[in-house]
Nucleic acid binder design. Structure first.
Length: 273
DNA sequence: AAGACGAAAGTGGTTGA
DNA sequence: TCAACAACTTTCGTCTT
């Protein structure tokens, strides 16, 4: 269980307000990440003079120098930001136990997002989390927004916003999350045998064919079908456990499974205590 | 004791004026 | 931008095993 009292002490990245940007044009991002060696920096100032105040000869040359230096600084800031984002993706991925494959997907998405210029005005952390969320979905092993948010240093809301924007701008065409995608993960987390897993999938599929799957959330439906399947096998885990793993409330599981059993015409009989 | 149940009130997100 | 709305959660008293 994640300690909910953890307070984020990391840098606040979301403040790309006008004044801040003006400052940043000179100084780069927050102190700790920019002046990583805490050393002095050198600038070529606007007066075309040398160290003794003499007028300089070759103005064009100095103009070019200034320009190059400015560019070098910007691009290295971008590189540092990218490095930070990728390390965050890595950190969150391992907290969630995601595969290498998914991390790569997320990293690719992140680069695309940067290339489209979509980062400006959003926190790096939120975008990184959003790419991870998207990568999981496209990989067929979705995590809920809550799960991603639990390992991110920004709110669920910010992640959702970043995700929506990204999905629109990159024209990601992700199928709606399917309840069946959750079955394997929930079952293995609860150490339910394969038979139950199979039965739960079957229940969901027949429900889908009969168009019984309404607008109810897929994680709740997945939990409900697992519950029914395990009831049929006389191996029902406590609703509390199922609710914890699925990230929904017990009440939701109850409502869904009653509803689903009714629609499928299943008689759970005396087993449904 | 432990779990299942469901009513009632509360919450956050979406939608449409 | 606001209010209505649906889905879900929290809380809690009751019932069953």
């Amino acid at each position: 269980m994640v300690d909910e009292s953890i307070i984020d002490t990391g840098p606040e990245w979301s403040a790309y307000e006008a004044e801040q940007r003006a400052q940043r044009a000179r100084s780069g991002a927050p102190l700790t990440l920019t002046f990583y060696d805490n050393g002095p920096t050198t600038e070529i100032d606007w007066r075309n003079r040398d160290a003794r105040g003499q007028e300089l000869r070759n103005r064009e040359q100095f103009y070019r120098l200034r320009k190059m230096q400015r560019r070098a600084r910007v691009s290295s800031a971008a590189e540092r930001n990218l490095a930070f984002a990728l390390s965050e993706i890595d950190r969150m991925s391992s907290s969630l136990g995601l595969s290498r494959n998914i991390r790569e997907k997320a990293a690719v998405l992140y680069r695309k997002t940067v290339d489209k210029g979509l980062i400006r005005g959003r926190s790096i952390e939120a975008v990184a989390a959003a790419t991870l969320y998207a990568a999981c979905r496209s990989g067929g092993i979705p995590r809920t927004l809550d799960e991603v948010a639990s390992v991110a240093r920004v709110s669920r809301k910010d992640i959702a916003r970043a995700y929506r924007l990204m999905a629109r701008e990159l024209e990601l065409k992700l199928a709606p999350v399917s309840s069946t995608d959750y079955i394997d993960r929930f079952c293995s987390e609860l150490r339910l045998e394969h038979e139950i897993r199979r039965k739960a999938l079957e229940l969901l599929n027949t429900a889908r064919e009969k168009k019984l799957l309404g607008a109810a959330s897929p994680d709740g439906m997945a939990a409900a079908s697992i519950y029914i399947a395990s009831l049929l096998a006389d191996r029902a885990p406590p609703q509390r456990e199922l609710a914890r793993v699925a990230g929904v409330s017990e009440v939701t599981i109850r409502n869904r499974y009653k509803e689903l059993a009714l629609k499928l015409g299943l008689d759970l009989g005396p087993r449904a205590a």
